[in-house]
Write a protein that binds this DNA or RNA. Structure first.
Lengths: 124, 124
DNA sequence: TTCGGTAGGGATAAAAAGTTCCCTATACGC
DNA sequence: GCGTATAGGGAACTTTTTATCCCTACCGAA
């Protein structure tokens, strides 16, 4: 996607997980594909806050990382579909766990975050 | 820590999880604290690849997010200790799951990643 | 007194990630 | 022909994150 200039240490499992699932829209995209939204246009409708350009780029990188796989109907009505590879499938429980934990602590974190923002605003 | 200019949507559990556990060293720091490495100097020795400045900043932000809690022995030999809060504790299983999944797929991802890099190099 | 260990921060640079704008090309329906 | 939908990308930009450098201040030990 972008050219990396710094060597990435993928010895640590946590870094590997972050590399694939980290980022603002990654897990969201994977989750949507798993839920059956396979086409780029559908994904863009599913996640309207994400710029379509960004979704495209993530799709390309996830494909390069072999988390998803693309199938094109070359002819017509121009169709592209993305599917999870076994690697992608294997990430689903982890994504579900992240979502669950995040939702369980959402209110709390939102509160604390709001307080942080307020304090920042007061200090400036 | 840094002043954010863009509103962060914390409605989605995945985003909440990424906010707290995402980033290059976050999960690593939390995990180290959980393993009993409670003092800043110890953490810096534990994760020597991470600049100490970065560790400091993460500690401050994790504290602000109430994932960890600081105790200072004000007097002497200048001592600071960090402990997980209940929120921090609750993240441990998730971190463990990330680590486990990452380690299970490490070789595979490393391989694919190496191929990507090689291809990039060939194209430039 | 100088050195080492502790905890911490300011300033700035560099890298990465995300955003925006605008473009290609195809084919359908009106 | 015109508008709309499909899939996709180039270029430039902003925001966020990470890294580098160098500093304060404390006290003990040598």
């Amino acid at each position: 996607m972008y050219e990396k200039k710094i060597y990435e240490n993928l010895d640590c499992g946590i870094n590997v997980a972050n590399k694939i699932l980290g980022g603002k829209w990654r897990a969201c995209i994977i989750d949507s594909i798993a839920r059956g939204i396979r086409r780029p246009s559908g994904l863009q409708r599913e996640i309207p806050e994400a710029p379509s350009r960004v979704i495209q780029m993530h799709l390309r990188e996830l494909e390069a990382l072999q988390v998803i796989r693309k199938e094109t109907t070359g002819s017509f009505p121009l169709k592209a579909e993305y599917f999870l590879t076994p690697l992608g499938e294997s990430a689903l429980p982890l994504i579900a766990a992240m979502d669950q934990w995040g939702n369980a602590n959402k209110e709390y974190v939102q509160e604390v975050y709001a307080a942080m923002i307020a304090e920042d605003a007061a200090n400036s």
